[in-house]
Design a protein around this nucleic acid. Structure first.
Length: 739
RNA sequence: GGGCCCGUAGCCUAGCCAGGAUAGGGCGCCGGCCUUCGGAGCCGGAGGACCCGGGUUCAAAUCCCGGCGGGCCCGCCA
């Protein structure tokens, strides 16, 4: 498309200036500014590509358009016919439309795909540039869920795309093993180990630790919330006592509903008689809400606020209770051990803080405990990811000396700049507001928002996540020799990623700052369910894969009379991988992905592509008894032979559509890379598959009697096969032979 | 309070940055093709306020302004 378009645009100024009697330069300007551009027509009957000329025609009376139009199309046809593969030019209400010669287009594709310069064309984009893609990097505290799955699939697909485009790609997983969350988990593990409970061999490690983390967190939170609820409750009871004593004696008493007065006093008088204070609280809350004007004044305002706080706390409490009950039921041993081992939240907080500071001070026992846990969980991650064809070139631990030491260096280096200082209390703060006054680069990063300030070293001398992240970024550029870095990280971290760039710039690494890219993606929401790792509520990638596999297996078995279950399960698993990756890839990274597990059977992006691929292979198999996946070079040389047998002919609508679709291949890859939107690869693969299905349905291939037509169709099939194969490489889809 | 992103049929989604003709797909629904290369397919159909209101323009889903609805960010958390 683009080559044809550029070709036409090249000759356009000359012709238009001649026919319409306008300045050639101004036409060039219109093209540059995009006012004159080539688009696909809405209907192939009109032609294939068109240009709207209304900008130029608006000064001319409408009844003269037709005459001018026919002269124009004639002129355009003579200049574009040979060099731009144009077959026909016509003028329809202000548009000049071009009909493309698809036969020539097909010849061009054969040159590229089969004679073999496609690979060079693609790899010339990356030219071996060293690129680090960091992705997934989930906290090692619970299994990967579909949120982390989106990260993994986007990251892995993008990395694969970059490789295809000739970049020297290294994928890294950053292990956040120093945070509070890992410390909570470690605390829980210590409690369990003191009670001699350890992981059964068949319990997948990430899931095992996920339960421990959730239960530990829940038990601590419940203890804290109980205290807070009681605190709010006594505040509420005190207020009631006050109200009962004072307000009722004032003249205002008249304006207060009687039932409310009674309730307030009843609460007060029964305070020490084992009452259900929460019930009264709820009653008063609804009453107060109804009396809007009452809520806004003094005492009642305070009461309403207290009740609101109470309500929120109770709600949070009951959510945790629900989560606790669920996990306690399924994992009674873990629950009992933790429940009895954790006294209250205060003690737990102390223990957790102790673990955190020991880890940061590199206490050997603590570090090895954290490492052991993280590595166990990572083992689970690797299994999961391996199932969907995702592998890493390396794992980098936040707790490594390399990162920790570098983090402290970074703080010291930054202290030498004008924008970083020790603030009251002793913490070190970076003032990006000050920095952006002097440096437009920093200002523009955050614009139109304020750049803000942030702490990079606590008053106790320990570093923070961002400090270590800065160190890690430097590590990627200096140690790993990255020329460019992509961080596949949730969009919620956009601010932190900008801070990272700003600090890099301040440290004098302006080139690195420019080459650091945040590949941002939006969250995944589960329909009708709020995922929360802390409460142990998530839809894991492992489950998703199994759910998918079961559904597909069911369908496969329905089709066969005597199903070979092992064989079919194997196929089902592969399709499940394609479908799972497909769903997670299907939506623009910038948009929230809403996922409904009940509709998993409808998410069939993977299957569509697999099916087209299998079908196309079948044709080659029947034709030459060749396996495309094993005998590619034979297939290609047979294809070359075919090119000799075809002569120029018109293509059918389906053939044209498929050829046109194939011609977009290279551009799609480049677009997808430039815009950091790997979802475009899937979208394209699906539409290519659909076009192929339609082509296949309409035309006999092997049984076609006309040798030329037959050869042409086989060629188109092979081109599709090559394109799909490449696309599946990029998307990490398994390549099925049969299904 | 400040900033960013999103809003397209019952559901999901592309198009928006670089405005152009009849808004492209998928799921689901209804009706056909009981299969000459594998039917997880193909053909046809119903279903649309492109969130609302203004503006710019020959032309607005697309650009600008103002709303509404949803998500996210503004920690000595990670």
């Amino acid at each position: 498309m683009s080559e044809i378009a550029n070709c036409i645009l090249d000759v356009l100024p000359e012709v238009l200036s001649k026919v319409l009697n306008v300045n050639k330069e101004s036409v060039k300007l219109l093209i540059e500014s995009g006012k004159l551009r080539i688009t696909s027509t809405p209907d192939p009957k009109l032609g294939d590509y068109g240009i709207s000329l209304h900008v130029l025609l608006k000064t001319i009376e409408k009844d003269k358009w037709e005459d001018i139009g026919s002269v124009l199309s004639e002129e355009l046809y003579t200049v574009t016919r040979d060099k731009c593969w144009v077959e026909k030019v016509n003028f329809i209400n202000g548009y000049v439309n071009f009909t493309v010669n698809y036969f020539n287009m097909l010849e061009k594709l054969v040159d590229s795909f089969i004679k073999g310069n496609l690979r060079e064309e693609l790899t010339s984009i990356g030219k071996g540039t060293k690129v680090i893609v960091e992705h997934t990097s989930a906290n090692p505290i619970h299994p990967l869920h579909i949120g982390s799955g989106r990260n993994s699939v986007l990251g892995d697909t993008y990395a694969r795309l970059l490789r295809k485009l000739g970049f020297d790609v290294e994928t890294r997983f950053y292990v956040n093993d120093l945070g509070r969350q890992v410390a909570i988990l470690a605390y829980g593990v210590k409690v369990l180990e003191s009670k001699n409970i350890s992981r059964p061999k068949d319990f997948k490690p990430d899931h095992w630790y996920g339960v421990i983390y959730a239960l530990t967190h829940i038990i601590i939170e419940l203890s804290r919330l109980r205290e807070e609820v009681n605190h709010e409750l006594s505040k509420f009871l005190d207020l009631c006592a006050n109200l009962c004593m004072n307000i009722l004696s004032e003249e205002r008493a008249e304006s207060i509903p009687r039932e409310m007065m009674f309730a307030i006093c009843e609460i007060t008088w029964k305070r020490n008689l084992k009452i259900e204070a929460l019930r009264y609280a709820r009653f008063l809350y609804t009453k107060l809400k109804q009396m809007k004007n009452m809520g806004s004044n003094d005492v009642f305002g305070l009461l309403l606020k207290t009740l609101e706080n109470l309500k929120n706390k109770v709600k949070e409490y009951s959510e945790y209770v629900k989560a606790e009950r669920r996990l306690a039921l399924y994992y009674p041993d873990i629950y009992n051990a933790l429940r009895s081992g954790i006294k209250d939240h205060k003690e737990a907080e102390v223990e957790i803080s102790k673990l955190m500071s020991l880890a940061e001070k590199e206490d050997p026992n603590t570090v090895s405990l954290f490492r052991r846990i993280s590595e166990d969980v990572l083992e689970g991650f690797k299994q999961t990811l391996q199932n969907i064809n995702i592998y890493f070139d390396g794992f980098d631990f936040e707790s490594s000396n390399e990162i920790l030491n570098e983090a402290h260096n970074v703080v010291n280096e930054l202290l030498k700049t004008n924008y970083v200082k020790i603030v009251e209390g002793g913490a070190v703060e970076v003032d990006l507001n000050a920095a952006s006054k002097d440096h437009d680069y920093i200002k523009n990063l955050f614009r139109p928002d304020q750049a803000g300030r942030f702490i990079i070293r606590r008053s106790d001398g320990t570093t923070l996540y961002i400090t270590r992240d800065i160190a890690y970024t430097l590590y990627k550029f200096r140690k790993l020799k990255a020329e460019r870095v992509y961080n596949v990280i949730a969009i919620e971290q956009a601010r932190e990623q900008k801070q990272l760039k700003a600090v890099l710039y301040m440290l004098g690494y302006s080139k690195e700052a420019e080459n650091l890219h945040h590949f941002a993606y939006e969250m995944v929401h589960l329909k009708g369910m709020r995922m929360s790792g802390r409460r142990g509520i998530y839809y894991t990638l492992d489950e998703m894969l199994v759910d998918n596999k079961l559904l597909i297996l069911q369908k496969l078995m329905e089709k066969e009379r005597t199903p070979d279950v092992t064989k079919l399960a194997n196929i089902a698993e592969k399709i499940a991988v394609a479908n799972t990756r497909g769903v997670l890839l299907s939506v623009d990274p910038g948009k929230v992905l809403v996922f409904d597990p009940r509709k998993i059977s409808e998410m069939e992006y993977g299957v569509i592509v697999e099916y087209a691929f299998v079908r196309a292979q079948g044709i080659i198999r029947n034709l030459w008894n060749l396996e495309f996946l094993d005998d590619q070079s034979e297939v290609l040389s047979e294809a070359l032979e075919l090119t000799k047998k075809i002569y120029k002919t018109d293509l059918s609508i389906e053939e044209k559509k498929l050829v046109e679709s194939l011609a977009r291949f290279k551009n799609i890859l480049i677009e997808s890379y430039n815009e950091m939107k790997p979802n475009k690869i899937l979208e394209y693969a699906v539409s290519l598959s659909l076009d192929f299905n339609k082509f296949y349905e309409k035309h006999p291939i092997i049984s076609e009697r006309d040798e030329s037509k037959k050869s042409l169709r086989i060629l188109i099939t092979i081109l599709t096969l090559i394109a799909l194969s490449e696309l599946m490489d990029i998307m990490g889809f398994p390549k099925l032979r049969k299904m």
